[in-house]
């Protein structure tokens, strides 16, 4: 009985350890992706003065055309 509890505790600890490690590795990898990937894209974007989000006010209307995709089996 006591042995089973120890095994369970060990398994639980191992699971927590692996979760912690994967969170750490994910964070490091995502940080690299963010700095390199998103950073370069952002730099290029700023250089070309392209606005991905429309942040400037307009004089007339803010309504724009709604253009749905007609390819329904696609995720985009």
């Amino acid at each position: 009985m006591k042995q089973t509890k120890h095994i369970k505790d060990f398994q639980h600890g191992l699971k927590e350890f692996s979760t912690g490690i994967s969170t750490l590795v994910n964070s490091i990898l995502l940080s690299i992706v963010y700095i390199v990937g998103v950073g370069i894209a952002s730099f290029a974007n700023k250089r070309s003065k392209k606005q991905l989000l429309e942040l400037k006010p307009k004089d007339t209307t803010y309504w724009s055309e709604f253009n749905p995709s007609h390819k329904h089996y696609r995720q985009f």
């Binding site: 963010y34 998103v38 894209a41 974007n45 991905l52 989000l53 985009f76």
Partner: peptide, 28 residues
Amino acid sequence: KPFLKAERVMAQHVQMFPKSFKTFISSM
């Protein structure tokens, strides 16, 4: 359409770099 939504999320991160670092790490 999940990919269209992802496009919007990525646009937010690119436009708001480096302020969006924390949400990028937590949401990805």
